[in-house]
Computed example of a mutant assay.
Amino acid sequence: MSFHHSTLVKPPPSDPNKAEIESILELTQLSPIDPDLFTNTRPLWQPPGARGLFGGCIIAQCLAAAYKTIPDTFSIHSMHCYFVLAGSGEIPVLYHVERIRSGRSFATRTVQARQGGNVIFTTTMSFVRENSGGKKLIEHAVDMPYVPGPDHEKVRDVIMKDEGNPIMSRSIDILNSHSPLPHVKKTRQWVKARGRISEEGGHQAHVAAVAYFSDHFFIGTISRVHNIWRIPVARLNHKAVKVDEDVRKDLRKDEDDATEAPKAPPRPRTPTSKKPKPVVSMMVSLDHTIYFHEPRRFRADEWLFTEMESPWAGDGRGLVIQKIFTQKGVLVATCVQEGVVRLKQDEPAPKL
């Protein structure tokens, strides 16, 4: 990857006192042009075989850019995002922050991410002043489900061999994997940033890190609960790229678990009765919403538990809901994502 094309200026040396995710999400402020204009300091990650940049990169950098226009006493509580175009890992991204409102208790910011003059991503965020709700509060939160801890023998490492990935992930078996009903299944994993996030990063670095990995395996939940994830080989720049073998094993185990449920005796099959298994031909995120409930009560470099489920899929789209908890059971964020999920058709599907 060429620094000349992927960043506006050559990146400075990495700071050994910062976690890898801090360096990846670092921004450069373009004050001589516009004090509310920023760009990526370092090259952004484009996963092998992906159509564009990892969405979590853009989500997190938009949040980091908006935070630079917000007083330290304010914290993010919601962001609503739309993926407009696939981003390229070979072109710098420009982030323009628009200061919509700066009130006493709430502040609103809109950020557009642009490449080559085109908007590739847009988000509107709301920030709230700390402790502005008063001393008397209405409070409740869903309980974290009982699951094996990140170091339990039943929890499997998902090893991501690409050097651009700054997170660690450990997978738990799909809940209700034997059920014929996809909407009752839940995919579960532990996730955290590699290394230790610096004190200099503040709580802003931790929420940006959660925004980054909130897009991890998100829309893919739909194909997993249908047990039709089929990506044996991805192609990037006309070269075959093998999918990480540990992810492949994880997905195969999900399929094996799903076949262990009691079944009726098999009926004799004729060659004409066998139907080909559906194949996912496209999975693309359309929008992404994060509600931060406790933005100052977690560390992203400590294990966080995520649980994802899909209440609906149809018409070439699907919806996924994600809850994120600390190891102590504190619900720190709820995320919602809709995306395009198309199966391979006999005839070509319409273009996006």
Rank of each mutant, 00 (worst) to 15 (best):
I174Y: 03
R42G: 03
V341R: 02
K154V: 00
K328S: 14
K263T: 11
P266V: 08
R299A: 12
S223A: 15
K277H: 12
C335D: 00
G87K: 04
H80K: 08
R269L: 15
T69E: 03
R170D: 03
L236F: 09
G103M: 07
D143T: 11
D72N: 14
S223F: 00
M125W: 03
G89F: 04
S6V: 06
P148M: 07
I321V: 14
Q337G: 03
G103H: 07
K275L: 15
A205S: 15
V97F: 05
E130S: 12
D157G: 00
R114T: 13
Q337I: 00
M1I: 09
E347F: 06
D301G: 00
P266M: 13
E260W: 05
D157Y: 07
K344G: 00
T259D: 12
A240E: 15
R235I: 15
P278R: 07
F38G: 05
L319W: 05
E294W: 00
W45I: 03
F3N: 14
I21C: 10
F213A: 02
R104A: 13
W45V: 02
D287M: 06
P232K: 11
H183Q: 15
T7D: 05
R252C: 06
L236W: 06
N176R: 10
K263D: 01
Q61D: 04
G117A: 06
R99L: 10
I290H: 01
L181S: 13
E255C: 05
M144V: 01
R224K: 09
N118V: 00
H4Y: 11
Q322S: 10
S6M: 07
E294T: 05
R196E: 09
A205E: 01
A300G: 04
E20T: 08
I21M: 04
V184M: 08
P13W: 02
P295I: 01
